[in-house]
């Protein structure tokens, strides 16, 4: 019996070594022949970019601007910029052409239904405030402003959900942080929902809604174009024509969002509904900076350059 066990162990060991030898043969192939010369990027920080580079090379043959932009987007995807200061290392997302340091990477909102199609920076129409609106989209779910109660007496409750998992979470700790770089960067978003008679909170875009949209996105190619339009209307059935406006939340009488319940400390709440923000919101159309804060009476912005000169210098210095 002992001899049999020994023999089995020996055979298993040999089979393992044989498998390893075969794997090693496959492993060596790209090591030996994989030298692609200058076309091959060996940057270890961009190990996953090898396949992307091949796609880029293929795309370039099209010599098409939009395809070049797509290629550029592929290159930038997930790219991390590192700055070693010796006493600290700054790791941040790479944003092409961005001068100021971001100092962080950002967790994508993997659980938002809307972002699946509209992207994480969806606001573009209102030119004066689109950046502000996108700023809010960073920590406020789309449905918070775009789906309001339709019937009299109906109201939403609001809770935070985790961007990664989509699950209900308690108030994020970043809310009470004094570190300004954490403002709005909570890894969570405020979203509306209903509280059932048993006291259980349910998001408007609950699991069932998410599963439905997921199914639609996977199977929409089976539908004709007319049916796809019809389904888009069905999915967007609850979206308001007029979204919640800035002063809906930024007022100190009856803010739409329950800041206290959502865990905002008093100082933060005061910032949001106080004159600093609410006043700016009220006057933003014509709010010019006070002249005495400008650097000197003789200071004036440079006169606009002729179009030709501007085109030459555009982006250079």
């Amino acid at each position: 019996m002992l001899h049999l066990i020994k023999t089995i162990i020996n055979k298993v060991y040999i089979i393992f070594l044989m498998c390893f030898t075969v794997w090693y043969g496959f492993f060596l192939y790209p090591v030996i022949w994989g030298h692609g010369g200058a076309d091959h990027d060996v940057d270890p920080t961009a190990a996953t970019e090898a396949n992307v580079d091949a796609e880029i090379a293929a795309l370039l043959n099209e010599a098409d601007m939009q395809e070049e932009q797509f290629a550029s987007a592929l290159r930038e995807q997930g790219r991390i910029a590192t700055t070693n200061l010796g006493y600290m290392v700054v790791e941040e997302e790479y944003v092409q052409g961005h001068f100021h340091h971001v100092g962080m990477t950002v967790e994508p909102d993997d659980s938002s239904l809307c972002i699946r199609c509209h992207g994480a920076i969806p606001h573009d129409k209102a030119k004066a405030i689109r950046a502000f609106l996108n700023m809010h989209a960073f920590y406020v779910a789309c449905e918070t402003c775009h789906i309001q109660p339709k019937t009299e007496g109906e109201s939403w409750a609001f809770r935070w959900y985790d961007k990664k998992s989509g699950e209900l979470i308690s108030n994020p700790p970043g809310l009470t942080s004094l570190d300004k770089s954490m403002y709005g960067n909570y890894g969570a978003k405020i979203a509306p929902g209903r509280i059932s008679s048993s006291g259980q909170f349910m998001f408007l875009n609950d699991e069932k809604e998410r599963a439905f949209v997921e199914k639609y996105l996977q199977e929409k190619d089976r539908l004709g174009s007319t049916q796809q339009s019809k389904m888009k209307k069905v999915i967007h059935r609850r979206i308001d024509e007029d979204p919640l406006m800035c002063d809906g939340c930024h007022n100190d009488t009856s803010p739409y969002l329950p800041y206290d319940l959502l865990g905002y400390p008093k100082r933060r709440k005061q910032d949001l509904v106080g004159t600093e923000v609410a006043g700016m919101v009220a006057k933003y159309q014509e709010f010019y900076m006070p002249k005495f804060l400008l650097p000197g009476d003789n200071w004036k912005p440079e006169a606009p350059k002729p179009a030709a000169e501007k085109a030459e210098e555009d982006g250079a210095y």
Partner: peptide
């Protein structure tokens, strides 16, 4: 305003 990471377009 500019302390908010999401301020972008």
């Amino acid at each position: 305003c500019h302390k908010f990471r999401g301020l972008s377009r």
